[in-house]
Every structure is written in C-alpha cells, then in structure tokens.
C-alpha cells in the first residue's frame, strides 16, 4: 500500500486575536487529492483555519505544513476563494479572471481564450465586460471561482462559496467543482455551514466545536462512491446514515453556540 502524500498539515495549532482565542489544539492532516469539508457553528474559526493554511495569518502556537514544508508567508501552492467579495471592483469580469495569469507574466493573448472558457463554464457568457458592481452576488461568486481555478493551483481553499446561489445554480456549480476536482487531482479544503453540501461533496468532514477556543469535535469519512449524482445522493440510505452521525455532534455545537450568544 502506498502512503498518501500529505498536502496540508496542522500541528497543534492555536490562534488568538488579542485576548480572544478563536481556535486551539487543532491537529489535522489533509491528504493530497482529498476533498475535505469543515463545518461548525458561525464564528467558530473556520475562516481562520483557511487563512492560516493560506499563509495570510500566522498561528499563535503550532505550525502549518504544506506538502511537508513548514509554511511561512503566502502559500504559493494554493488558491483561495474568499467568503467575502474579493473581486477587484475596477476590473471587468474578464480582467478579473485573467488577473492571476497576468500577475505571473503569462501573455494576455494566451490567457484570453482560457478566460472565456471559464466564463462559459461558470455560466456568465455575455458578461465578460461587466464590472463587479453590475453583477448579482451569486454571479460575483462564480467569477471568483473562475478567478481562482484558472491558476490551476494544487490546493484550493473555498470559504462558503455557494451560500449566495439559488438551488439550481448551486447544484450546477457543485457538480462543476466535483468534475474539475476529479479531473485534476487537486486538494480541496471546503468550508460550509451546510452539512448536506459538505457530505455530498467530500471524502471527509471535520466538525469544529463552538468558539471560543474551538477544537475539532470529530472527523468523519464519507465513503460514498464516486462519481456522485448530487441530486439523488441525498436520498440514498448511506448518505442519511452519515448525515445522522455527523449531525448528532454538530447539532450539539450549534446549540452550544446559541446558548453563548
């Protein structure tokens, strides 16, 4: 049996903001090529974990390694789709999507065609020359997805990417992500508050406890066969078994976080 490569590793990581400890004692390993989701109550520290793995924040204690190398500074192997709007408002859809290649010195003649493939893939044909403020929230999310994926990073962080999308578009985007992921062997770390989404997409689901000093409550393997049919999967018995199992733990944390606030 070959040993799986480790793409991301958190070693006893803690992060405090001044007095407030957001996360503590986080040890987690994500295998290369895995699709891992992080769920937990609002404010528990999911985005904080991604920020540390992206190298945008240093852990207060512990360390993060990427493919076995301790991370310092920006994680050059990763793309990050942020929870907030992060498109450059002064660039059009096309310019936003071309930005990554442009920054790395790829000539624009090579990028444009690729960008238009992405524009079509995320369903924004005809919007190439719009500015972000002329798009709906869901459309902006789809541009952000193209902006991140066009760079072809080995690791992708996605922070609640589909919260703003309607059910139909959401299913389409989720399907697109799974297809791309299966084709390209990327490692995905995916944050969501929707447990159904987490289970439907992932190989593994991590549940965080309510903050402060949030910890990992449990890690659950999702052994559903791939490729998955995202519409039908939610009615499968195996899906519901896993859902029941994870929800028991998550429910408790959600209730705890209600009590505290």
């Amino acid at each position: 049996m070959s040993v799986a490569r480790e793409a991301i590793r958190f070693d006893n990581v803690a992060k405090s903001f001044a007095e407030y400890t957001a996360v503590e004692g986080i040890s987690l390993s994500v295998n290369a090529g895995a699709f891992l989701s992080v769920v937990g109550p609002s404010g528990c520290g999911k985005s904080t974990l991604l920020n540390m793995a992206a190298g945008l924040m240093n852990p207060t204690r512990g360390s993060v390694s990427i493919f076995g190398e301790p991370l310092s500074g920006i994680n050059r192997k990763a793309g990050y789709m942020f929870q907030q709007d992060a498109l450059l408002p002064w660039k059009t859809v096309e310019e936003n999507i071309c930005l990554g290649p442009e920054l790395r010195g790829v000539p624009s003649s090579e990028t444009i065609a690729q960008a238009h493939e992405w524009i079509e893939r995320v369903g924004l044909k005809g919007f190439a020359h719009r500015y972000p403020h002329q798009l709906s929230g869901g459309m902006r999310k789809r541009v952000a997805m193209a902006q991140t994926w066009i760079n072809n990073p080995e690791i992708i962080f996605m922070d609640e990417p589909f919260g703003a999308l309607d059910v139909h578009t959401r299913l389409r985007m989720e399907g697109e992500i799974l297809k791309l992921w299966a084709e390209t062997n990327k490692t995905v770390m995916f944050v969501t508050h929707d447990l159904e989404e987490a289970i439907a997409l992932s190989d593994e689901v991590v549940v965080l406890s309510a903050g402060p000093a949030s910890r990992i409550v449990g890690t659950y393997s999702v052994n559903l066969k791939r490729p998955r049919n995202l519409i039908d999967i939610k009615t499968e018995a195996a899906f519901n078994d896993i859902y029941g199992l994870v929800w028991r733990d998550l429910r408790e944390e959600v209730l705890r976080s209600y009590e505290r606030s």
Binding site: L56, I74, Y80, L88, L99, L103
Partner: peptide
C-alpha cells in the same frame, strides 16, 4: 484588506499590488 489578500493569493508581488490594487483603489 480582502481585496489585497485576494491579489496576493493570486500571486501579486508588492509592486504589482501597488499597480493593480492600491493605485486604483
């Protein structure tokens, strides 16, 4: 800061950050 972080994740150097983010903003 989210836009700055996005540009940095996309590979912007300090100089590119000035050109693509700070000046337009």
């Amino acid at each position: 800061p989210v836009i700055v972080n996005n540009a940095r994740m996309l590979g912007a150097s300090e100089r590119q950050l000035i050109r693509h983010v700070l000046i337009p903003s």
